[in-house]
């Protein structure tokens, strides 16, 4: 959702738009291209890798995500609704064989976040999770 600076002063639940990223978003084909830059065009299967994030972001500027990719050498994280699709690329050393890491990312709007893992044998696995970034709502 695009909110102008003025219109972010909305009702209960009217949080400001995600300030850290500015505006604009990438196209669907751009996501495919960006993923291909990581996978080299290899087939991506599901399973073996997990990505967790809250159902609803408390703040789109700082959304906690956790990846667990046992046996992965690297994991790239993409935010399909962000102006810049690639968010981070993790490389795991021998001391982190479970491929477990958490960080906090910016999400410009409600969208899917995708983690693609390059496994030790050179194959690719992916997991995705849907995160809602809301501006409205008022509880109780």
């Amino acid at each position: 959702m695009r909110l102008t600076r003025r219109s972010t002063l909305v009702l209960c639940g009217g949080a400001a738009a995600v300030a850290g990223l500015g505006f604009g978003s990438a196209s669907a084909s751009a996501l495919a291209d960006e993923i291909e830059r990581f996978t080299g065009g290899a087939t991506v299967a599901t399973g073996l890798v997990s990505l967790t994030a809250p159902e609803i972001a408390e703040n789109g500027n700082t959304v906690p995500i956790r990846i667990a990719a046992p046996g992965a050498s690297a994991v790239a994280v993409f935010a399909e609704g962000n102006p810049l699709l690639r968010v981070a690329t993790f490389r795991f050393g021998a001391l982190n064989p479970a491929g477990v890491a958490s960080t906090r990312i910016r999400l410009a709007k409600t969208q899917n976040v995708i983690a693609i893992a390059e496994m030790a044998d050179g194959t690719f696995r992916q997991a995705s999770t849907f995160v809602k970034v809301t501006v409205g709502g008022c509880g109780g």
């Binding site: 959702m1 219109s7 809602k132 809301t134 501006v135 409205g136 709502g137 008022c138």
Partner: peptide, 13 residues
């Protein structure tokens, strides 16, 4: 914007 706002709140309910 108003429409997007009502949609957003409606989805939270």
């Amino acid at each position: 914007t108003l429409s997007a706002l009502l949609e957003d709140v409606a989805d939270n309910i």
